[in-house]
Design a protein around this nucleic acid. Structure first.
Length: 426
DNA sequence: TCTGGGGTCCTAGGACCC
DNA sequence: TCTGGGGTCCTAGGACCC
């Protein structure tokens, strides 16, 4: 029987956050745009025009203010409600073009493109690309190959080299070899800053140099992950499509503050809010946690502040996703590590030892009324979904994280009526 | 003055058990 | 008066991703 070769497509939205802003404001087309992180601190997205001006990814905005002023760069605070909604629309369109989809991040997805061949594969991808643009106004690039790592490489080339019309298919040894020569080692999926520095010291400048290194050397210097990356570059699939979203093993909610917090009361407000959001995320994936961990830290960039960082955790006798329980225990952990006399810049709550709700064994020493808290939480989620994320909350929650974060250049949420920026009383 | 947030996986080393 | 060796679990640290 003829076995068709597995092919993966990687679809990546071009300059996603910048493209979202542009989709609702056509006057921005052709202009340099940047989108900032929380607190308007760092650049987290740039349009091509901004990249060309030399504005770096992750660069603090104050470092590039000269460029911004000189070239009239349009600056936006990040609007995650808008981007999340646009992402849904893109993914919905993509899922019509293949049987299996793995939503890899807010702006990327892998599709199973097996069953097409050669030019029909390319046509299918081009058709898909046009559909996404027509439906959402977001331009995307597509890379297609026999492994996910090669599909990533194809995608990068589709984005950089205009002659491919936004779709690069790597299905011949010649096309693969050429693309490996054209890919700097640091641009390979799975090879980050540390490894690429070390590899470059060894004369490995490109993906092509990398695949020439012996397996045992790669394994020794870069663990099994590095070896998998090498094999994937050689066309041997080691990373499967994960079309079923696995439940998260840890969940973290944290923020930096625009201005530091010195009193424990202020930190308690934030920690309570974060614990409540972790509880909600747990309920959404139908799980509970047994460990609640809280961390605090001062501003590591400050040359004058005394530095302090610490974390503590509480173990629950029975796993829970109950807001009251998590808020209470998170505050207990905070009390353990809080030290007066510091200017705290960031705090967060991490929940771990996550188990599916059906697997919870109740502790011998405690008989919580599970059904009661369950229906209370269900009612709470329903109310918050209807009236805004923090409409109903525990007494100590701050209600809106925005109070202590900072967004000056926010555009409207064009696509959603209720969002987390709204404060509504219930 | 101003520096994001949320995840995963692998390995080494120590504790502990038989 | 000799001081093994293998397995498992946990944790911290380091690497990576977007």
């Amino acid at each position: 029987m003829h076995q068709k070769k597995t092919m993966y497509a990687l679809i990546d939205c071009n300059n996603f956050y910048a493209s979202c802003e542009r989709a609702f404001n056509p006057s921005l087309i052709g202009k340099p745009i940047v989108v900032l992180s929380n607190n308007d601190g760092c650049v987290v997205a740039r349009s091509n025009e901004s990249k060309a001006l030399g504005i770096g990814m992750g660069q603090p905005i104050f470092q590039v203010m000269d460029i911004v002023k000189q070239h009239d760069v349009k600056v936006f605070s990040s609007n995650y409600v808008l981007y999340g909604d646009m992402s849904h629309r893109v993914m919905r369109t993509l899922s019509r073009f293949a049987p299996d989809i793995e939503i890899y991040s807010i702006d990327e997805a892998f599709l199973n493109f097996s069953g097409f061949q050669g030019s029909s594969l390319e046509l299918h991808a081009k058709h898909m690309r046009q559909s996404v643009f027509r439906n959402t106004g977001i331009p995307v690039s597509v890379g297609i190959a026999a492994t996910k790592t090669l599909a990533k490489i194809g995608n990068r080339i589709a984005k950089k080299q205009n002659q491919w019309g936004g779709v690069r298919l790597l299905d011949t040894p010649e096309a693969i070899a050429l693309s490996l020569e054209q890919t700097p080692i640091g641009d390979v999926w799975g090879i980050g800053r540390k490894y690429s520095y070390r590899l470059e010291q060894q004369g490995v400048k490109t993906a092509a140099d990398f695949v020439r290194k012996p397996d045992d050397w790669v394994h020794k210097t870069m663990t099994i992950n590095g070896l998998r990356t090498k094999w994937e570059l050689q066309g041997r699939p080691c990373i499967a499509l994960e079309d079923v979203l696995p439940a998260k093993k840890t969940i973290c909610t944290s923020r930096s503050f625009h201005s530091p917090i010195e009193q424990i009361e202020g930190l308690k407000e934030m920690v309570s809010e974060f614990a409540a959001r972790c509880a909600l995320k747990l309920r959404q994936q139908k799980t509970s946690c047994a460990i609640i961990s809280v961390f605090v830290r001062t501003n590591p960039f400050s040359k004058t502040d005394k530095q302090y960082r610490n974390s503590a955790y509480v173990t629950l006798p029975t796993p829970s996703n109950d807001t009251m329980t998590l808020v209470k225990q998170a505050n207990r952990a905070l009390e353990h590590i809080f030290q007066p006399g510091f200017r705290y810049k960031k705090t967060g709550v991490i929940v771990g030892s996550i188990v599916p709700n059906d697997f919870i064994q109740t502790s011998l020493f405690e008989t919580p009324d599970l059904s009661k808290t369950k229906s209370l939480m269900a009612a709470l989620d329903k109310c918050n979904a209807k009236y805004g994320r923090s409409a109903v909350r525990t007494a100590v929650q701050s209600g809106t994280i925005r109070k202590l974060t900072h967004k000056k250049k926010l555009t409207p949420c064009y696509t959603t009526r209720w969002d987390d920026l709204m404060e509504v009383r219930c």
